[in-house]
Protein backbone atom coordinates (compact mmCIF):
# COMPACT_ATOMS: atom_id res chain seq x y z
CA UNK A 1 0.00 0.00 0.00
CA UNK A 2 1.29 3.43 -0.89
CA UNK A 3 2.01 6.23 1.55
CA UNK A 4 -1.06 7.90 3.11
CA UNK A 5 -1.05 11.00 5.29
CA UNK A 6 -4.39 12.54 6.34
CA UNK A 7 -4.83 15.32 8.88
CA UNK A 8 -7.19 17.99 10.11
CA UNK A 9 -4.88 20.52 11.70
CA UNK A 10 -4.75 23.91 13.38
CA UNK A 11 -1.25 24.43 12.01
CA UNK A 12 -0.30 26.61 9.05
CA UNK A 13 -0.04 24.52 5.86
CA UNK A 14 3.13 24.90 3.86
CA UNK A 15 3.95 23.19 0.56
CA UNK A 16 7.53 22.58 1.73
CA UNK A 17 6.48 20.47 4.71
CA UNK A 18 4.00 18.51 2.59
CA UNK A 19 6.64 17.97 -0.09
CA UNK A 20 8.99 16.39 2.43
CA UNK A 21 6.27 13.96 3.50
CA UNK A 22 5.22 12.83 0.03
CA UNK A 23 8.46 13.05 -1.92
CA UNK A 24 10.03 9.73 -3.00
CA UNK A 25 12.09 8.35 -5.83
CA UNK A 26 9.75 5.69 -7.13
CA UNK A 27 6.80 7.82 -8.28
CA UNK A 28 7.38 9.76 -11.49
CA UNK A 29 4.27 11.93 -11.40
CA UNK A 30 3.37 14.17 -8.47
CA UNK A 31 0.36 16.51 -8.49
CA UNK A 32 -0.19 19.19 -5.87
CA UNK A 33 -3.48 20.99 -5.28
CA UNK A 34 -3.64 23.95 -2.91
CA UNK A 35 -6.89 25.60 -1.90
CA UNK A 36 -6.45 29.20 -0.70
CA UNK A 37 -8.80 31.75 0.85
CA UNK A 38 -9.88 34.17 -1.87
CA UNK A 39 -10.79 37.82 -1.32
CA UNK A 40 -14.32 37.73 -2.74
CA UNK A 41 -17.42 35.57 -2.91
CA UNK A 42 -20.79 36.27 -4.52
CA UNK A 43 -20.13 39.99 -4.85
CA UNK A 44 -18.84 40.52 -1.31
CA UNK A 45 -15.30 41.38 -0.25
CA UNK A 46 -14.01 38.60 1.98
CA UNK A 47 -11.40 39.36 4.65
CA UNK A 48 -11.12 35.95 6.32
CA UNK A 49 -12.73 32.52 6.56
CA UNK A 50 -13.21 30.47 9.72
CA UNK A 51 -13.03 26.72 9.15
CA UNK A 52 -14.55 24.49 11.80
CA UNK A 53 -14.05 20.73 11.74
CA UNK A 54 -14.25 17.49 13.67
CA UNK A 55 -10.69 16.18 13.88
CA UNK A 56 -11.08 12.42 14.48
CA UNK A 57 -14.16 11.96 12.30
CA UNK A 58 -12.69 14.16 9.58
CA UNK A 59 -9.46 12.20 9.45
CA UNK A 60 -11.46 8.96 9.19
CA UNK A 61 -13.37 10.40 6.23
CA UNK A 62 -10.11 11.45 4.56
CA UNK A 63 -8.62 7.98 5.05
CA UNK A 64 -11.75 6.43 3.50
CA UNK A 65 -11.43 8.72 0.47
CA UNK A 66 -7.77 7.69 0.14
CA UNK A 67 -8.75 4.01 0.33
CA UNK A 68 -11.15 4.62 -2.54
CA UNK A 69 -8.31 6.20 -4.53
CA UNK A 70 -6.18 3.11 -3.99
CA UNK A 71 -9.05 0.93 -5.19
CA UNK A 72 -9.63 3.09 -8.27
CA UNK A 73 -6.08 3.99 -9.35
CA UNK A 74 -3.83 1.44 -7.68
CA UNK A 75 -2.51 0.63 -4.25
CA UNK A 76 0.88 2.18 -4.94
CA UNK A 77 -0.43 5.79 -5.02
CA UNK A 78 1.13 8.09 -2.46
CA UNK A 79 -1.56 10.35 -0.97
CA UNK A 80 -1.44 13.37 1.29
CA UNK A 81 -4.46 15.39 2.38
CA UNK A 82 -4.11 18.15 4.99
CA UNK A 83 -7.05 20.41 5.84
CA UNK A 84 -6.55 23.37 8.13
CA UNK A 85 -9.12 24.64 10.65
CA UNK A 86 -9.28 27.97 12.44
CA UNK A 87 -9.56 31.50 11.07
CA UNK A 88 -7.51 32.05 7.91
CA UNK A 89 -6.75 35.32 6.20
CA UNK A 90 -6.99 35.96 2.48
CA UNK A 91 -4.29 34.05 0.61
CA UNK A 92 -3.73 31.47 3.33
CA UNK A 93 -3.92 27.79 2.39
CA UNK A 94 -6.86 25.79 3.73
CA UNK A 95 -6.14 22.49 2.01
CA UNK A 96 -3.21 20.72 0.42
CA UNK A 97 -3.67 17.56 -1.61
CA UNK A 98 -0.68 15.67 -2.94
CA UNK A 99 -0.81 12.60 -5.16
CA UNK A 100 2.27 10.65 -6.20
CA UNK A 101 1.88 8.04 -8.90
CA UNK A 102 3.91 6.15 -11.45
CA UNK A 103 1.82 7.78 -14.18
CA UNK A 104 0.34 11.25 -14.67
CA UNK A 105 -3.22 10.23 -15.59
CA UNK A 106 -3.79 8.48 -12.26
CA UNK A 107 -2.23 11.42 -10.40
CA UNK A 108 -4.48 14.00 -12.05
CA UNK A 109 -7.63 11.90 -11.68
CA UNK A 110 -7.02 10.96 -8.05
CA UNK A 111 -6.27 14.57 -7.12
CA UNK A 112 -9.53 15.74 -8.68
CA UNK A 113 -11.43 12.91 -7.01
CA UNK A 114 -10.10 13.83 -3.58
CA UNK A 115 -11.03 17.52 -3.72
CA UNK A 116 -14.51 16.77 -5.05
CA UNK A 117 -15.11 14.18 -2.31
CA UNK A 118 -13.76 16.57 0.34
CA UNK A 119 -16.35 19.13 -0.69
CA UNK A 120 -19.12 16.53 -0.53
CA UNK A 121 -18.19 14.51 2.54
CA UNK A 122 -15.63 16.09 4.86
CA UNK A 123 -17.18 17.45 8.10
CA UNK A 124 -15.88 20.98 7.73
CA UNK A 125 -17.90 24.20 7.89
CA UNK A 126 -16.91 27.62 6.58
CA UNK A 127 -17.89 31.00 7.96
CA UNK A 128 -16.94 33.93 5.77
CA UNK A 129 -16.03 37.30 7.27
CA UNK A 130 -16.74 40.31 5.06
CA UNK A 131 -15.24 43.77 4.81
CA UNK A 132 -18.65 45.16 5.82
CA UNK A 133 -18.28 43.46 9.21
CA UNK A 134 -20.95 40.86 8.44
CA UNK A 135 -20.36 37.12 8.71
CA UNK A 136 -22.12 34.16 7.09
CA UNK A 137 -21.91 30.40 7.14
CA UNK A 138 -21.69 28.96 3.64
CA UNK A 139 -24.30 26.52 2.41
CA UNK A 140 -23.09 22.97 2.05
CA UNK A 141 -23.89 19.39 1.16
CA UNK A 142 -26.08 17.33 3.50
CA UNK A 143 -24.55 14.12 4.91
CA UNK A 144 -27.98 12.73 5.70
CA UNK A 145 -27.89 9.00 5.10
Amino acid sequence: MGFVHCEITDDVLTPAKSWELLQNNTQGAIIWFLGNVRDHNEGQKVTAVTYEGVHSLGENVLRKICEECHEKWGADLGLLVSHRVGTLGVGETSIIIGVASSHRVAAYEASRYIIEQVKLRLPIWKKEHYASGAQAWLRGNSLNG
Binding site: G35, L120, I124, W125, R139, S142
Partner: peptide
Protein backbone atom coordinates in the same frame (compact mmCIF):
# COMPACT_ATOMS: atom_id res chain seq x y z
CA UNK B 1 -23.53 12.45 19.34
CA UNK B 2 -22.41 15.10 16.89
CA UNK B 3 -24.95 17.11 14.90
CA UNK B 4 -23.39 17.83 11.51
CA UNK B 5 -25.14 20.40 9.32
CA UNK B 6 -24.44 20.37 5.56
CA UNK B 7 -20.67 20.41 4.98
CA UNK B 8 -18.44 22.51 2.73
CA UNK B 9 -14.79 21.55 3.11
CA UNK B 10 -11.98 22.54 0.82
Amino acid sequence: LFVLPPVCGG
